[in-house]
Nucleic acid binder design. Structure first.
Lengths: 206, 206
DNA sequence: TGAAAACCGTACCGGCGGTACAGGAGCGGA
DNA sequence: TCCGCTCCTGTACCGCCGGTACGGTTTTCA
């Protein structure tokens, strides 16, 4: 029904913000229901327990994440025919999008859930793993496409390069938060972009 | 006194492992004292509250971290005169050290504490920030030294390059955990190493 | 040997995750 | 119109956990 979905979404919205700000353990159900204006029974009507909240939160987060990547790199591929140029443009668009977040990136749920591994069940760990594999497939395909047109100056594995995108994003988020410098994340992404450009730059002749 | 220090260290050892495995919130004091073989009173004799435990944990972790970097890059600088070769060697040594960890990297306390930001007080956030700044200073100095001898193929800021080391390490840890592939972290470090080598590679002439 | 350090034991508090269960408002369809 | 389903509310309760309070005891070192 409509009403139920709306309440459930509201709980997820509130929970996501709280979890990214304070961590999962420090986010209490009492706090969520107070902000959502429902009772404890209402909460447990929607989620069997806190772990199921985590699962729903994670699934929704990953789905949204994928949508953003689809959009950005889709647009990049529309604007540039060449796979390398499209990828470099995508990185730039992503960097700009991250710059425009007023308070910096709110944090990655995948990261928060795997820094607290054993606090969650195996199902969640598996969802997390699949998310990372999806990133690898996505960017791996792009690098393979690039490599069909450009010869890299150094022999690097497409999957490892793909993982580098995730690494820089996750690491950049951590560093931005630690340093309290929101610019670090988009900047790091641009540094990586320079590396990629360098890697596929044709050898200058004459 | 001596005995007190030993008990305190034992608590920290147990806590560190538990926090890295389950997160700070999911680590209970009851659990720690059971494993340490002491009582609750004993715990609170050593630490005023859980936050002070976190602080001690973080400080000890960072200290140890710095010591490892000192050792590895110190050794690299002993083995290679050239600053670039020394840095590249240091990255390789670090990658090898990370490969040799049987169950992969246990996790970075700096990362876990900043993905759970507001669960801790400002003092801890400041310690975290200082740690990230120390990394920047350390690697920034190395890159500046390298740049005095090599002209980079692309104009990149030494501090941003320094941050890239932290980014790759932190991101690699997250990715390794998410994928459950311990090799990812050392591999990512080697990919970064290739990028650095590429960046400072002299332009080939005929 | 004596004082300080390093605990132990016990009792208690409030918050939180979670359970159980009864009941009720609203709403759509037969 | 009333049945039944969704979507909750209200109340009571449980055990774990962080934390406090405080008196007593052992251990250690000067």
């Amino acid at each position: 029904m409509r009403k139920g979905e709306e309440t459930r979404t509201r709980i997820l919205d509130i929970a996501e913000a709280a979890v990214l700000a304070k961590g999962f353990g420090a986010t209490s159900i009492d706090e969520l229901i107070a902000e959502a204006g429902i009772t404890k029974s209402g909460f447990f009507y929607h989620f069997r327990d806190k772990n199921e909240l985590a699962k729903a939160l994670l699934e929704r987060y990953i789905e949204n994440d994928e949508r953003i990547y689809d959009e950005i790199f889709g647009r990049a591929h529309d604007l540039a025919d060449d796979p390398l140029q499209a990828f470099l443009l995508g990185l730039k668009l992503l960097s700009e999008l991250l710059s425009d977040l007023p308070n910096g990136h709110p944090g990655c749920l995948v990261a928060t859930m795997c820094t607290q591994e054993r606090a969650f069940d195996r199902e969640i760990q598996e969802i997390n793993r699949q998310a990372a594999l999806m990133w690898r497939r996505r960017f791996g395909a792009m690098f393979r496409d690039i490599m069909r047109h450009y010869r890299p100056r150094e022999a690097l594995d497409a999957d490892q390069l793909a993982d580098m995108v995730s690494t820089v994003l996750e690491g950049g988020i951590v560093l931005s938060k630690a340093l309290k410098e929101p610019r670090s994340l988009p900047d790091q992404l641009l540094v990586f972009r320079t590396f990629v450009r360098l890697l596929f730059q044709p050898i200058a002749q004459a």
